[in-house]
């Protein structure tokens, strides 16, 4: 089960991801995110506070989102990763590809500079 709750803070889309992202729901996750993103968004912040598990298929979905945003000079930021999720990002090296922030506020701050 994965739930994506979005809100828009000016031209930034914030997406709270709740549950787990694995092969069984990755398509659903990708769709939810894709449908929420608007062309005018200059950044997407994924809040992983309530994400309990992410498989490699989930990482791929994150990567695809980041790539499609990058293609139009927008950014993907991640925030509030639990230790377990952070470990997955560290092992795979994804923490070096994507900006990860301790909180949503800090992620937003990083954009305002």
């Amino acid at each position: 089960m994965v739930n994506v709750t979005t809100e828009r803070i000016d031209d930034v889309l914030s997406a709270d991801v709740d549950g787990r992202i694995d092969g069984s729901n990755v398509v659903q996750f990708e769709e939810a995110v894709r449908n929420a993103i608007e062309d005018s968004d200059r950044a997407v912040i994924m809040n992983f506070e309530k994400l309990v598990y992410i498989s490699s298929a989930g990482l791929r979905a994150i990567l695809l989102t980041a790539k499609s945003l990058q293609n139009r000079d927008a950014k993907l930021l991640l925030c509030s990763l639990s230790d377990r999720i952070r470990e997955v990002f560290e092992i795979s090296g994804f923490d070096k590809i994507l900006p990860i922030h301790p909180s949503k506020a800090e992620a937003l701050d990083s954009l305002d500079r």
């Binding site: 990482l59 990567l63 795979s92 090296g93 994804f94 070096k96 590809i97």
Partner: peptide, 9 residues
Amino acid sequence: TDGIALGIF
């Protein structure tokens, strides 16, 4: 040794 998964960058 760190290192990123292959096929990305």
